[in-house]
Design a protein around this nucleic acid. Structure first.
Lengths: 188, 188
DNA sequence: ATAACTTTTTGATATAGATCAAATTTAGGT
DNA sequence: ACCTAAATTTGATCTATATCAAAAAGTTAT
């Protein structure tokens, strides 16, 4: 069912019936069990995933440690933007942290959709702009926030994700060690 | 003269004569002397600037210190993306570091241009995507690079900007102190 | 329930880079 | 060229958080 995806896109642009039909055609529903992978290193990430339900993370390995780059839950997207856009293999892993249901969209079909439906191209521009602004905030956070502030910030804007992700993954996402996060949580 | 801008856009999409005409109509050529401002805090930043010549920085104040957020030179863009896109005032300053010549484009006219020329919307999507990927690299840099590595990285990818920006501004851009940057440069 | 593993917490120490302070070099204006 | 101010360097501490190590708490399978 692509209804949640349509609803999501409608927050940015009006979605005609013909566009809905096209999206239904290119969307591939996909279910993954907790712990399983949507993508592994060495290959190009051809898909971007819209999450119907569940929670998914993207991470990579750095000297045997796992660095979590992002978490995405229902109503959000996840992919290796770099690999997806440039068609270059990436060393990242995309892993479900709960049993999840996703809608996978292939880049080539998405680009064709952009060509055929200018309003969809518009949606694409608005969506990537939104993520651009989120990243800007993240840069500010890495530059100026203490470990404690990073955690407080995640509590505020991370929605309900806090209860759904293991501490170690959260620490690496915030750019601090597990031990520091544990101490920060113990304060107050 | 908007020729450099057209040439820039043509790196992403073909530019028809009618699109060129439209761009000529909405582009405002602007010259700024070294040290002067294109934008100051408290107002909405209604323009995005394409730089024909010169070098410009965007910065804001944090407890009386200036934090440089970015430098842009010929062939690049600069604006407060946040303010420009959301129509919310920003506390940033945009300042010319050399006598510069810019092409200012108003958001409303740009959006109308997007509506009338879907290929221009496509350009907008591609451009913001490019900046998204640059930001991703910057996040990696803030998370994992030492002061020295940040400096080395800027030497490699910052092109000729290194000779054109004062050390203190570069340090704040890299997220280290002036003193640390000075020591790092003295190495080797 | 118990064993085996994983995750989280707690403790002790080390370190990169910040901060504070002052000297030196560089640059702009008259 | 000279004077003043700004930019950069050098030196001496300080601090937040990483790192290393081990204990405690929680989870999963038999």
């Amino acid at each position: 069912m692509i209804a949640p995806l349509i609803k999501h896109i409608e927050r940015f642009i009006p979605v005609s019936d013909t566009l809905t039909d096209r999206l239904a055609k290119i969307a591939r529903l996909q279910k993954v069990k907790k712990g399983k992978f949507l993508h592994k290193p060495g290959t190009v990430c051809h898909f971007t995933y819209f999450i119907n339900s569940g929670i998914v993370r993207i991470y990579y390995k750095k000297s045997s440690k796992e660095i979590t780059d992002n978490f995405s839950a229902e109503g959000e997207w996840i992919t290796s933007v770099y690999s997806f856009m440039t068609n270059v293999p990436d060393r990242c892993y995309i892993q479900a942290l709960e049993d999840s249901e996703l809608i996978a969209i292939d880049l080539q079909q998405l680009e064709q959709c952009f060509m055929d439906f200018p309003e969809m191209e518009r949606f694409g521009r608005m969506l990537i702009s939104k993520y651009f602004l989120e990243q800007s905030e993240r840069i500010i956070s890495f530059r100026f926030h203490s470990a404690s502030e990073k955690y407080q910030y995640f509590l505020r804007v991370g929605k309900n994700k806090i209860q759904r992700v293991p501490l170690g993954m959260l620490a690496s996402f915030l750019g601090i060690t597990q031990e520091t996060l544990s101490r920060v949580r113990a304060e107050k």
